[in-house]
Structure formats: structure tokens, C-alpha cells
């Protein structure tokens, strides 16, 4: 699907199917974000995603639902060589999830949302803005 799309000046963000198989099939991505919770299984899936995608595109690891330094360390121990963005576990995002609302609407000032907005700004700098 990604292969059929011309991104042109726009951003195409693809929320892949869970697991490693989807990474194998999405070889047209310019950037891959590997989201990992601080659990062994989740880190393992991210590690394999990095292994597969890392050969053809830059990969950013997103350490999600992080509760403290130990959690970051656990992820860094396996994925330390990758660029890392930390999204802390916080009530705002969890509440947005319960309510069925967008985190950016429900908890715009939460640390987690702000970390993702900052990542978006950095990604935005890598591509030209659409002609408005």
C-alpha cells in the first residue's frame, strides 16, 4: 500500500498491523518508528523491527509507557544504538484512551503528548511544507 502512494509534499503516516510481519511488508517507508513498552516481549518485537527496517530506513525507537529510569534502561539495553524518544506513562493519555478521545485534544499539555509533538516537529523539518 505504501508503495502505491506518492507522498509528494505530504506526510503519510501508516499505523501498521501489530508484529514484525508488517514491517517486512512496509519496505517503502522513509522513516520507521518502532514503539516499545518496557516489557520483554514488546522490546523484542521492536528489536526485530529495527533489525528488519534498519537496513533501508532510519528508525526511531519510541519508549512508551515508561515509568522511570529503569524502564528507559531496559529499552536502551537492547535498543541503545537507536535514536530514542521517551513517552512517559501518564494519567492523561490513559484517560483519553478510556474516553475514546484523541490524546492531543484530551491531554495536550501532558509530557507524553509533548514528546510526540516535538518528534513531529523534527520529522517536519525533514520534509518540505505543503504549498499553502
Amino acid at each position: 500500500m505504501l508503495g502505491e502512494l506518492e507522498s509528494g509534499g505530504r506526510f503519510v503516516i501508516c499505523d501498521l498491523e501489530a508484529g514484525v510481519g508488517a514491517v517486512v511488508r512496509s519496505d517503502q517507508a522513509d522513516v520507521v518508528l518502532a514503539v516499545a513498552e518496557p516489557t520483554v516481549k514488546s522490546i523484542e518485537v521492536a528489536r526485530r523491527a529495527v533489525e528488519i527496517a534498519g537496513e533501508r530506513a532510519p528508525v526511531v525507537v519510541i519508549a512508551n509507557r515508561v515509568r522511570g529510569e529503569e524502564d528507559v534502561d531496559a529499552i536502551r539495553a537492547v535498543l541503545g544504538e537507536q535514536e530514542l524518544v521517551v513517552v512517559p506513562e501518564e494519567p492523561g493519555i490513559a484517560a483519553a484512551d478510556r474516553e475514546g478521545a484523541a490524546p492531543i485534544d484530551f491531554a495536550p499539555d501532558s509530557v507524553g503528548v509533548r514528546a510526540l509533538v516535538t518528534l513531529a516537529e523534527r520529522l517536519g523539518e525533514r520534509a518540505p511544507r505543503a504549498a499553502a
Partner: peptide, 25 residues
């Protein structure tokens, strides 16, 4: 630019994808 968001089920792919998309827009 094409961005693929990967991870284990429940890791938070969808939260990341949705928030990034809105921020970029």
C-alpha cells in the same frame, strides 16, 4: 515523506500515529 509505525500489539502504535499525524497537520 512516508512514516511507518511498528510495534507489538498494545505497545501504543495507535496513540503515537494519531498524535504525530495531528501535530504535523
Amino acid at each position: 515523506m512516508k512514516i511507518a509505525v511498528a510495534g507489538k500489539g498494545g505497545a501504543g502504535k495507535t496513540t503515537v500515529s494519531g498524535t504525530l499525524a495531528r501535530s504535523l497537520a
